[in-house]
Write a protein that binds this DNA or RNA. Sequence first.
RNA 1: GGAGAGAUGGCCGAGUAGGUCGAAGGCGCUCGCCUGCUAAGCGAGUGUGGGGCGAAAGUUCCACCCCGGGUUCGAAUCCCGGUCUCUCCGCCA
Length: 424
Amino acid sequence: MLEIKFVRQNLSKVQEALAKRGNPIDLDVFKSLEEKRRKILSEIEALRHRRNLVSDEIAQMKKERKDAMERVTEMRGVSSRIKDLEKDLSQTEESVNQFLLNIPNIPDASVPLGKDSSENPVIKRIGKIQDVGFKIKSHWELGEKLKILDFERASKITGSRFPLYFGAGARLERALINFMLDVHTSEHGYTEVLPPFIVNRQSMTNTGQLPKFEDDLFKLHGWDYFLIPTAEVPVTNIHQGEVLAEDLLPIRYTAYTPCFRSEAGSYGKDTRGLIRQHQFNKVELVKFTTPETSYDELETLLQDAESILSRLHLPYQVVTLCTGDMGFSAAKTYDIEVWMPYQGVYREISSCSNFEDFQSRRANIRFKQKGKKGTELVHTLNGSGLAVGRTVAAILENHQQSDGSVRIPEVLKSYMGGIEVIRP
RNA sequence: GGAGAGAUGGCCGAGUAGGUCGAAGGCGCUCGCCUGCUAAGCGAGUGUGGGGCGAAAGUUCCACCCCGGGUUCGAAUCCCGGUCUCUCCGCCA
């Protein structure tokens, strides 16, 4: 959420920034609501001031055993007037708030201008794409032939877009989770977290999934709870409402969680394989930083995610999301895209973002500098490190051999109980 | 699921016959003094958010003692509802 004062004082700047993102918003409604809110508020405060003064007077008169009836009667009127205004105020505040909650973040100045994903500049490509000299199979074909993936049976159990792994496939998924967590905790300085997989409405609102994107979430019947679409939600909300000591920052957490997404509106897209599922596993990286360091921390966050791909010998590229392609809460985002040889395209496998104070304002996460007055909002960041199902897909396709077997990357061997190749 | 106890400032902890309580006291922290160093000691200060005035220091007003309602001229204090935590019983991986 943007700061109300900032929006009020920078109407045209905000409007311009939102136009760049491709979601123009008419701020006139906001302007008049906000004026109304401030007008009512100052009237209420004046009346409350008066009431406070006279109430003290009444107390004094009672002490001196004087008759205070006249004042009491007067204050009855004042109090009921206040009550009416308060009702009006809370309605207006609610409207202003709803408006603000639906305004996306303002892109950082370094974010390239563009209308959609076709305009995301590639900033680097790592790893060689080799011509293997045989016909590349898709990961779903490999998975089914190797008897490690079974999409048909998964749909019997639940429906379409749910994964079912067997044997070395299940082991590979688990190996990747452990490998990623181990690297991030022991080499990159993150603290491992295992959070709830179900969160309440407030947490979803704090990180920006709500109120706008409820259709993308799975909601629990009879509860105001939701399945998490990413560990970002529970992990960022660990510190909601807290004032952190500055010397604790930056805080770095990594968490494995399953992720649940309704994928509303994606009918027909990526219908085969592991790319787009209602349930998938992900290892997430989350940081809380000071405003001064958040952009440096975004760069190292990106490196931390990249290092997983390098160690798995998977070719990838990094793009900067342009203004028109960024998520609602982000101020700047890098996507890491892994090479998927069957389709011959790079596919998103990690998304690393700096949210600046957009989430921390909603979640009220602050820090305090020693010896300094007041508090300041932290900056929050997160990135996938990595999406596990897509990593399995990438390993299958990139490390397949002409006989339909798949080589396990060296770094995973110890996690795979010595399995070096998955064979039919 | 049943019974009970509790929720106060960065932390601990007073405050219930409603009025000068934004809240005692302690700890912590900041600044100053003192002191071979450290510790101790002494003095002063020290919540958050919003608004007005001010270049700033500051000053002033409003709100906040878990959350939401209610009673009242006036609520941290009384009433109702909710959330969370703890204890006991039951059940359970």
